[in-house]
Write a protein that binds this DNA or RNA. Structure first.
Lengths: 194, 194
DNA sequence: TTGCAATGAGAACGATCGTTCTCTACTCTA
DNA sequence: TAGAGTAGAGAACGATCGTTCTCATTGCAA
């Protein structure tokens, strides 16, 4: 007895609808009724799949996390050189910052809005940031860079995201890329151009 | 006919009470009743001085902006060397990140929470970030650094704030300081130690 | 065909919040 | 001293939101 629309697809469509609304207006500013209207499923269905709004928020963050990982992976594809792959992260940011409706990092926004009141949201945000940190540290390790370099590059990526959002300056990604290259060269002693 | 407590002092105490609550729990999570209780003034008084909660939020952000500027100024005092003054910004961050109750940059948090819904909050946040950018650019100019260097240093400071908050790692300030020194040296060609 | 379980659409509930209003008490002026 | 204007304390209002409930409808099983 498959439902009119199977649960998997319903889940996906609800999460995508909620994601668009939460990201554009903030979580608190979006009522469940707005999610229902945009997703096209009755509240009952939504609450069966996501027992509370917090559950939906967590699902949205997990969805964002997958999208982020896929975007990074795609951006790095084609660059075998680890340095090029590191810099590709900033190219990815540059493209993202220029997308319509860019409004900063959804995780940072969610953390500022819900972090103090929701342990689960705070943890989800921390996990996403930690996984990015690990990814960068891995790439840095492959070029023989120090752990400090990895931490520095993460700061640049993080700062670029908030600066691009608040100042509305997508060039922040290019600024970060330039700084990253300088730091990589200084740390590894190699002189490269890219 | 001075009031029992004059308006100037009432304003200050209300703003400080609201600041503490907003920063710790987020703006939306704090009701005006909580502000009244902590500030010790009746709602009527509060609403006479701040016609709406948004006005109070703006006043809190302006207060934070003054505190930030004073903190930076104090941290830089005693360093005549512009490079040392640039690095003092990161020492200031390092001390701040280690304070009890540190929960990230209040402006970034407010922007994520209220930015999409309040033009005035968004503008206040943008202005604070812009004034910091100008300050850094000024210091960088004095050491003959390029405008790009100033933008890079701002990204580091911004990234350190969000990383320290989310990951709970105050060392982000020291990481940023190290990166700043490397970038300054690379940009100005001078080799310094600090 | 008849009964049952689940669905959909939306009303309803209970809580919370920003804001305003009421009413009492006080203070300063004439 | 009498009165007018204001302050204080808290109740009350209107709106919104997360969540649940109602009830008519539908698709399936026996």
């Amino acid at each position: 007895m498959a439902a009119a629309v199977d649960d998997g697809r319903a889940r996906r469509e609800i999460v995508e609808a909620a994601d668009g609304l939460f990201y554009a207006h903030g979580v608190n500013a979006v009522g469940m009724d707005a999610v229902r209207e945009r997703a096209g499923f009755p509240l009952k269905r939504i609450y069966k799949l996501f027992p509370s709004k917090e559950d939906l928020v967590i699902a949205v963050l997990e969805h964002r996390s997958r999208m982020w990982n896929e975007g990074i992976t795609r951006a790095e594809r084609g660059s075998a050189d680890p340095v090029a792959r590191l810099l590709a992260v900033f190219d990815f940011l540059a493209a993202w910052f220029r997308e319509d409706g860019f409004r900063g990092c959804a995780f940072i926004n969610a953390y500022g809005e819900l972090g103090p009141g929701s342990t689960r949201v705070a943890r989800a945000v921390r996990e996403q940031k930690a996984s990015f940190r690990v990814h960068v540290a891995d790439l840095v390790g492959r070029i023989g860079g120090s752990p400090a370099l990895a931490a520095q590059l993460v700061l640049l990526a993080e700062g670029a995201q908030t600066t691009a959002a608040i100042a509305g300056s997508p060039e922040a990604a290019d600024v970060a890329r330039g700084a990253a290259l300088t730091l990589i060269e200084a740390d590894t002693g190699a002189s490269r151009t890219a």
